[in-house]
């Protein structure tokens, strides 16, 4: 039974390089990670046997996604490539490589039925690809700054995308125009003294009921170049494009949200990594402040929730991939 106040680490697997991203197999057979080289790793569950995937990218990989049946892995790299993998097979190899974006491919989201994958990147575009053929089926160019996050809606027909400047756009696959604009400006900082843009919509998560979404990142960036900033998640209602809550976490003076996800009881969960360390942070819809947080052993950079909704995998700077159980049992 879900109880985030009872969170505890149940698995801890080590790699020899700092990790960047992770995903949980929907069938809970393995977790996949990317690291500060050009490689991906697969850790079997529950034993943690590590398989290093063949090198298919020519740069770091920040974006990972799995098909709903866990058979296909999608990886997006700073080389702009989108690679399809037969991740569930004994011998894992790249099945298809697409030149998806000019510059970094930063983010991807697989549609609920697995037929499409949406990607976003530093070319300021959002693209949608057919997972069977690799064909580009849609492309939008409405963002003024680099696209940091994309997320399919539960209906699989609409897509949210967020950028460095704090703009969130809702689009429909059957239209070229923007169907909704949301102002997530608190997630963006332009620091005039340092002359840098910072922050951005680092992650998006749509509530299963499709009435709300959360945009995560950071705020209070008084020293962007020095990692002084705090985590922030903005909760929006689709109806009226209304900002409902600005979720903060007291006591984390150095952190930012790398991913947010909804738990089965309606709790919003975020993973924070920064100079304060790594945390899983939990918010309800009643208050801005978190009602619980779980301190991770090291700075975290990504997380993913298991299908049963009780296990969370986190990727860490110290090279470890950890699985945290959100229940007493």
């Amino acid at each position: 039974m879900l109880d985030v106040t009872k969170a505890k680490i149940i698995h801890d697997f080590a790699h020899d390089r700092p990790l960047l991203a992770c995903r949980y197999d929907p069938k809970e057979r393995f977790v996949v990670t990317s690291s500060e080289d050009y490689r991906l790793q697969k850790f079997s569950l529950p034993g943690g046997e590590k398989t290093i995937l063949p090198e298919a990218h020519n740069s770091w990989v920040h974006a990972l996604g799995l098909s709903p049946d866990g058979q296909i892995l999608y990886s997006g790299g700073c080389d702009g490539k989108l690679v399809f993998w037969n991740i569930a097979d004994a011998e894992v190899k790249p099945l298809r490589t697409l030149d998806a974006h000019q510059g970094w491919l930063r983010t991807l989201s697989v549609s609920p039925d697995g037929s499409l994958v949406a990607t976003g990147g530093n070319d300021k575009t959002v693209k949608v690809w057919n997972t069977q053929t690799g064909e580009l089926v849609k492309q939008w160019q409405g963002h003024a700054k680099n696209v940091y996050s994309v997320q399919f809606m539960p209906d699989g027909k609409r897509i949210l995308s967020g950028d460095l400047g704090g703009a969130v756009q809702l689009r429909s696959l059957d239209a070229d125009d923007i169907k909704g604009n949301f102002e997530a400006k608190p997630l963006h900082t332009y620091e005039g003294g340092q002359m840098v843009d910072f922050g951005g919509v680092r992650c998006l998560a749509v509530r299963p009921s499709s009435d709300q979404f959360a945009a995560g990142g950071l705020h209070k960036a008084t020293n962007p170049l020095g990692a002084v900033h705090e985590p922030l998640a903005l909760r929006f209602a689709f109806e009226g494009n209304q900002l409902l809550k600005s979720h903060v976490s007291e006591g984390i003076t150095g952190g930012g949200l790398w991913r947010v996800q909804w738990l089965s009881d309606g709790t919003l969960m975020g993973v924070s990594g920064g100079s304060s360390g790594g945390f899983l942070i939990f918010w309800n819809d009643q208050q801005d402040k978190d009602f619980s947080k779980f301190k991770l052993p090291a700075l975290a950079r990504d997380m993913d929730l298991s299908t049963n909704g009780l296990n969370v995998v986190t990727a860490h700077h110290d090279g470890h991939v950890r699985i945290t159980r959100l229940s007493e049992s």
């Binding site: 510059g103 970094w104 530093n122 003294g193 340092q194 002359m195 840098v196 843009d197 910072f198 962007p224 170049l225 020095g226 990692a227």
Partner: peptide, 16 residues
Amino acid sequence: SNYDTHNENFDFHLEQ
């Protein structure tokens, strides 16, 4: 300015 990128060096260098 500014290249004093103790944090997120790659994003800032991309920009600058």
